[in-house]
Amino acid sequence: MASGSPLKPNKSGPTHNVKLSKLLSYILRHGAEKEGLHMLPSGYVKVEDLLKHPKFKGYNLDNIRLVVQNNSKQRFQLNEDGAEALIRANQGHSIDVPDLELTKLEPGEIEFAIHGTYEKCVSSIKEKGLSRMRRQHIHMVVDELQPGKVVSGARQSCDYVVRINVAKAQKDGLEFFKSKNNVILCPGDENGVILPKYFYSIHPRIF
């Protein structure tokens, strides 16, 4: 457990929780090395190391617990089973995390997956496909995007959906995985892309 961390939160409330959540997302998905923080191959960072970092000044372990527990998308995993508290992001990394404990989906396990996007991106997606861009994976969900429902793997504000034929893509060698918070992940082909030939459809999201 993080030694020297006070047990009572000294920063709380919605504003501080959102700020801390965004900070954790940045560090655990993208910026650990840049910020001089050691990340284990499993993606975990010591909470004690985080709390010593200037960006986390004024926060403590209870603040982090609160963010992890209340995050509707279950972005983070806090491990307090050992001598030291550890935290990691479940998905969304731009940095390589070799031992993230993703579950590989077997052929036929799911037929399709849904990627949320925006109207301004549709023309490019139809022409070039879905790109993982700077991240390690393209993010998808299995369930339809319901109005007002928060789902890990898709932004609430997206106004278009891409339905991907997972079975067809798997037959051609693409790999699909499921994260701890049930996001469907695919690294794409050798160029980091799911090509348009694997799309069932692209259509406006129903709100």
Rank of each mutant, 00 (worst) to 15 (best):
E175N: 14
G173K: 03
I114Y: 01
R75M: 13
A89L: 05
I95V: 14
Q156N: 08
H115V: 05
V161M: 14
R134P: 00
D172Q: 09
G173Y: 02
A83H: 08
E80D: 13
Q136W: 02
G153K: 10
R155M: 04
G108N: 04
C121D: 14
E80G: 06
M133I: 01
D143C: 13
K126Y: 04
V151D: 06
S94C: 11
C121H: 14
V151Y: 01
R163H: 08
M133D: 09
C121F: 09
E106K: 07
G116S: 14
Q146F: 13
I114C: 08
T117A: 02
T117E: 02
Q146M: 07
E80I: 00
S152Y: 09
I114D: 08
N90A: 10
G82L: 01
I114H: 05
M140W: 09
F76L: 06
N90C: 04
P147V: 12
E144C: 03
R155D: 15
L174H: 05
I95W: 01
A113L: 07
E80Q: 15
P98N: 10
T117L: 07
G82M: 05
R88L: 03
R163L: 11
L100G: 05
K126G: 06
K128F: 15
V161W: 07
M140T: 01
L102T: 07
A167S: 13
I95P: 08
P147I: 14
I125G: 03
T103M: 10
A85E: 01
A85H: 06
E111G: 09
P147G: 03
A167I: 01
H139F: 15
Y118D: 13
E106C: 06
Q170G: 08
D99E: 11
R75H: 11
G82Y: 04
K126N: 09
D143E: 15
N79H: 09
D81T: 09
P98Y: 15
I164N: 08
Q156A: 12
V141Q: 07
V161H: 10
Q170M: 15
H115S: 04
L86T: 00
H115G: 04
E109C: 02
L105A: 08
A167R: 11
R88V: 02
K171P: 00
E144M: 08
G82H: 00
K149C: 15
A83V: 10
A154L: 06
K126F: 03
Q91T: 10
F112S: 13
G148N: 10
A89N: 10
Q91R: 09
K104S: 14
P98Q: 08
A85Q: 01
I125E: 05
R134C: 02
Q136V: 02
N165Q: 04
Q91F: 15
E84P: 02
S123I: 00
S131A: 06
H93K: 02
A89T: 12
A83C: 01
V150S: 07
P98M: 06
D143F: 01
H137I: 00
S157M: 13
P107R: 07
S123N: 11
S124C: 07
S157R: 08
Q91W: 15
M140N: 09
D99T: 03
N165K: 12
K149T: 11
G153R: 12
G173S: 13
S152W: 07
